[in-house]
Structures are given as structure tokens and as C-alpha cells.
Design a protein around this nucleic acid. Structure first.
Lengths: 208, 208
DNA sequence: GAATTTCCTGACCAGTTGGTCAAGATTATG
DNA sequence: CATAATCTTGACCAACTGGTCAGGAAATTC
């Protein structure tokens, strides 16, 4: 039985299989979207039978929901880290770098998220207008303070954040397109992106 | 019979229904992705019966392919318009504005494209590494020339173009998220974005 | 090493979906 | 207005898909 509310013993096998399944599910969901994925595809990827998958997870939705939940945490983390104490430009550019590294190292998570948002965020709309909005509001205040203190060129904090999200995630979500246009190897593409984005946001934040 | 290669009479009804169907299909495909859409959904949206849809289009794939084809043309147009003759900064910022207007006025097309790319661009990979790449190469040369002539701050032309694509399309593809965070009305959001993006790219292109 | 619990699977089911088809309805045409 | 061409649909089909279940296989426990 899939683990439900009450806390009970979690066996070794449960831990391993659950992990393997979620990993396979992330592979499949991020590549085909929720409706484009079948439990059989996930089963094949995880090298398990379909009923075996459903032994650990009540339904396709459950797997998807759990993946989204996990992802949201790691997704917010880099922004959380942006401290109001450090040097404004470095703090923001540091955030850009962390976000770009996430796009490079966790492209599946990024695509899972992109898929969800594209479909209108049916499963996470509450987290968007709740925690995400709250966090963004908080950081926007910090950025605005920096601007007021003259440490940063005036920018709309919210749209600055949007620009960071879009430009960095682009390298994960639209990777096929980037590769089709550039042709370069993945590592090279990300090194170029790193330089470019740093240049761009530095220019925006430190113009006179 | 769906119109195939040979040129033959196209009746009034054919023109009207085909158009209505493609419009409905765009609605549905952009909202649910290819696999998430059913012919029945399209039929309902177009106020036609399912077999009637299949009278005009051989298959679900045919509709999808035709929509993608159409979309790619209009998608490339704004970039084509960027002239090597005008003022560099204005030409590029003009492109940004046109692209943002497209995101505002044709969000369905933008999402259709985003869905396709996210899934690995299975149907349009050739157009990406063919026409799109060729066009991008051509414009990159122009931008590089401007830089060499000292009319533009040094930037990687390709990544500049990527940044334009990502930031503008973000307002169509991630609209739900933008709205969840900002809350403002659509028109207001786009006006803010317009100012912000103009500021950002101007700063990048004209720094000393 | 036997009992108990956990784990696994083949067979199966019901609902969905892309697509077909024969026959009738509508529209254009001479 | 008759005839041909085009258009429309209800009924139907096969493949797919999410999910169930009874019973057997492994693992764990005592």
C-alpha cells in the first residue's frame, strides 16, 4: 500500500523503489508532459511492471504531484538565498548564476515546471499565488530598497525577476532550439550563457 | 476529402470550415498540448462533429502540422524585419517591442510553439536547424558588424537574440505565473514589460 | 524454518480516443 | 429541377490507458 497519512515502518525496498519510480517518472513527465506520459512508459523506464508502479503510488496523479512538490522547493531555494545584506549587484548576479546552474544541472525539473505552467498550472496555482508570490514580494522589497539607496539603477523589481527566470530557464526548456541554432556542445553553450547573462544584468543594474 | 497536392476547386464551405477548425485546434492544442488534446475537444470548440473534422483533416497530426507551419512564418517575421540599415539600438529594441506585441496578441501561437519545443521539437526540428538557424546566423552577422563599427556595446549576438526570445515569450507562455505574482490586469502587465525590456536591452547595448 | 508481512504480476476491466464507413442531407450546376 | 458533387453524421471498431485484483513469490520476523 502506498504510504498514506499515518507514520509506519518504511522498508529498504520501499525507499529504493519509490526513488527509482520518481526518477523514471521525472524522466517521462518532463519529456512528454502529464497527459503525454503513460504509466507503462514510466514502468519501462524504471524497469518495473505497471501494477508494481501502482503498488507504490496510488495513481499517475500522485507521482506527478509529488514531483511537482519536490521541485517547487528546490526551485525557490536560489531566490531565498539572495541576501539583503551583501552587495546588491553581486547578490543579483549570484542569483542569476545559481539559476543558470539549475537549468544546466536539473533540466528535467525545469521542463516539468514549464509544462505545468504552460497548461495553466492546474496543480500548483495555489503555490504560485501563495508562497511564490510571497517570496517574490519579499525580494522585490529588498531590490527596491537597494534602488532607493542608490546602489542599483532603477528597475522594476518584479520584471527584473521575470527576466532572470525567463533567460535562465530558456537554456533548459528551449535547449533543443538553442542547440539547433548554435550547434555547440552543451558545456560550451552554458559557459557562453553564463558570461552573457552576467554582462546583461550587470549592465542593467549599474548603468548611470 | 481533405485538400491534397493537386490544385482543385476550393469551395466556400471548405474555406470557412477549414478556418474554423484550425482556429479551434489552435485553441485546444495551445491549452493542452498535442497529446492532451482530443479531436472531440476540437470538434466541440469548432461546433462540428468529430467525423466532420476528419472530413477536412486526415488526422490530428495534420491539423497540428498545419498550425505549426503557419505559426513558424509569423514567428520569424519580426526578426526578418530587423534591418541592417537603421540605427542599431532602435532596430534591436524595435524587434523586442514587436516580439512582445506578438506575445500579447498571439499567446496561443506562442504556447503552441513552446509546447512543441519542450517536447523536443519532434515536428519542426528541421525548420529549426534549417531556416531558423539560417536567419539567426544572418542577423548575428549584422549585429556583430554593428559591434565592430562601435555602434553597439560588445555582446554575443546569438545569446542576445536568445534573451530577446525568452524574455518576450515569457509573458505569453508563463502568463499564469506572471499573473499569480503580479495580479495586475493583462494590459498593465504588458505595459510594464514594455518599459522594462526596453530599459534592459538599451542598457545592455549602450553601456560604455 | 515457519509464520507473517511485504512485494510483485498476469489477467482483466471499463472508459477514452483516433479513425472508418455507409447512408443520408445539403449545395452547386447544367 | 434533376443530377452530380460536396458535405455531414450516427454507429462502430480497434488500440490504448488508468487502474483493480487474486494469488503467488520474496523478504522479514520471531
Amino acid at each position: 500500500m502506498a504510504r498514506s497519512g499515518t507514520t509506519k515502518k518504511v522498508t529498504r525496498i520501499q525507499r529504493e523503489k519509490t526513488e527509482a519510480i520518481l526518477n523514471a517518472a521525472l524522466d517521462v513527465f518532463s519529456k512528454h508532459g502529464f497527459r503525454g506520459s503513460t504509466i507503462d512508459m514510466i514502468a519501462t523506464n524504471a524497469q518495473l511492471s505497471k501494477p508494481n508502479i501502482l503498488y507504490y503510488f496510488d495513481s499517475k496523479e500522485t507521482m506527478h504531484a509529488q514531483l511537482l512538490e519536490r521541485m517547487l522547493e528546490t526551485w525557490l531555494e536560489p531566490l531565498e538565498q539572495m541576501s539583503g545584506d551583501g552587495d546588491p549587484v553581486n547578490e543579483i548576479c549570484g542569483y542569476v548564476q545559481r539559476k543558470l546552474e539549475m537549468a544546466r544541472d536539473y533540466p528535467r525539473e525545469s521542463r516539468l515546471f514549464a509544462n505545468e505552467i504552460l497548461q495553466g498550472a492546474p496543480h500548483i496555482i495555489d503555490q504560485l499565488s501563495g508562497p511564490l508570490r510571497a517570496l517574490t514580494d519579499r525580494k522585490a522589497v529588498v531590490i527596491q530598497r537597494w534602488i532607493d539607496e542608490g546602489k542599483l539603477s532603477p528597475v522594476d523589481p518584479y520584471h527584473l525577476i521575470f527576466s532572470i527566470w525567463s533567460t535562465t530557464q530558456h537554456y533548459a526548456d528551449f535547449d533543443v532550439q538553442v542547440q539547433a541554432v548554435l550547434g555547440d556542445a552543451k558545456n560550451l553553450r552554458f559557459e557562453q550563457a553564463q558570461v552573457h547573462l552576467d554582462t546583461m544584468f550587470r549592465a542593467l543594474l549599474t548603468r548611470d
